[in-house]
């Protein structure tokens, strides 16, 4: 506290503190998340090679409606991004995403663009800012 008082006794100190304060307030108003929503999954093992956009799977949207165990136990999804060797034919047979996306529980598979909605060139993996950016084993 004494150091701050001594800072206030000269003009440079005032400038220093003012810039600090203004910068801090500006930072408060400009707080922006890094990018993708936490736990978003990009799937692009087959998509772009077959002429459609990569799949963006939002965990946040689904966990409002379903507990983890529904997909990761009943439907057989492995807990590793891109670790499930599945394709559209299996979904049309009512497996994996097709268990719900069948125009019964959720909208049907004919709405290609709602899942295949990613930017070109995205790599398969789990996203969501620096705190999800671990060593890449997910």
């Amino acid at each position: 506290m004494r150091k701050i008082r001594r800072l206030l006794e000269n003009k440079t100190g005032w400038w220093f503190l003012s810039v600090l304060a203004v910068g801090w307030v500006a930072g408060l108003f400009h707080a922006q998340p890094a990018g993708a929503e936490y736990a978003d999954v990009v799937l692009n093992r087959l998509s772009e090679a077959n002429g459609v956009r990569p799949v963006i799977y939002p965990h946040w949207f689904h966990r409002i409606r379903f507990r983890c165990k529904v997909c990761h136990s009943e439907l057989g999804f492995k807990m590793k991004a891109g670790g499930n060797d599945i394709n559209m034919l299996e979904l049309m047979d009512g497996k994996f995403c097709g268990s719900c996306h069948n125009n019964n529980i959720a909208w049907g598979l004919e709405n290609c663009h709602r899942c295949h909605s990613g930017l070109k060139g995205l790599e398969t993996g789990i996203r969501g800012g620096h705190k999800a950016g671990g060593p890449g084993v997910w």
Partner: peptide
């Protein structure tokens, strides 16, 4: 003060794609 990026600015979704108008924002 929580802020979520809208889908067309999240760096994943294609802002030119047809899904942007249909999908829910976080």
């Amino acid at each position: 003060k929580r802020v979520w990026k809208p889908l067309d600015k999240d760096g994943l979704h294609d802002p030119q794609g047809p899904s942007i108008r249909e999908l829910q924002n976080p």
